[in-house]
């Protein structure tokens, strides 16, 4: 069954077809959420909310863009909301008071790829910390574009489509993000 047939079957209420549709996209979606939010619980929430929305709104999908674009619009909107909320939110329910006032809960630290790969093991915690620091300092949109390009391998054109903007605007956003990364990681470069 090709993708269009799968979508039509799912729209007609075929649960297996819907599940197959989810499974052909859910790994990159989870990775995107994981990289954007750097927390497995947040990535879990995005996954659930995004695919529930897909399920509830699949009827309104009219094939006027690719399913990938349609799905990623949902996912990126949820992630952008989440990133913005995260920036303004200063306290969490289980906040711990310290002498300097309430402490922010740190983002929980995702486990990085398994130890089997020696190259990854050699990546110093310092560098990894730096990358996350720069990502956090980016605007939500810069970060979104940057992650879609670097960790999803999406073309600028597709990124523009998903974010409802032009290729040129996506490019400028990506430039800014890459410049920030480039100058922050300067000390690690040859």
């Amino acid at each position: 069954m090709d993708e269009a047939a799968l979508i039509r079957a799912a729209q007609a209420g075929d649960q297996d077809a819907f599940e197959r549709l989810v499974r052909s996209y859910d790994q990159p979606v989870l990775r995107l959420a994981m990289n954007l939010l750097r927390s497995s619980e947040d990535a879990y929430d995005i996954y659930q909310e995004a695919f529930l929305r897909v399920y509830r709104n699949l009827d309104s999908f009219r094939f006027d863009c690719s399913f990938h674009t349609w799905l990623y619009r949902i996912v990126t909107n949820l992630c952008l909301d989440h990133l913005r909320k995260k920036k303004v939110r200063r306290t969490e329910p289980a906040v711990v008071e310290t002498e300097d006032g309430p402490m922010d809960r740190m983002d929980s630290v995702p486990e990085h790829r398994a130890d089997g790969d020696p190259q990854r093991r050699l990546l110093s915690a310092e560098l990894r910390g730096k990358i996350e620091e720069v990502l956090k300092a980016m605007t939500a949109r810069e970060r979104m574009v940057f992650e879609m390009r670097h960790y999803q391998g999406m073309r600028l054109r597709a990124i523009g489509d998903v974010l409802g903007t032009t290729e040129e605007a996506a490019k400028n956003c990506l430039f800014r993000a890459t410049q920030k990364m480039r100058s922050a990681l300067g000390e690690f470069l040859p």
């Binding site: 989810v22 994981m34 990289n35 497995s40 190259q119 990546l123 990364m181």
Partner: peptide, 26 residues
């Protein structure tokens, strides 16, 4: 070099997370 470093900085969903997501969504 920057590209290589960024590839190494990718966060990996922990093992079991995808399975948990799929099960709970179902």
């Amino acid at each position: 070099r920057l590209e290589e470093m960024l590839a190494l900085g990718e966060a990996e969903p922990p093992p079991g997370l995808l399975a948990r997501c799929r099960r709970d969504l179902a």
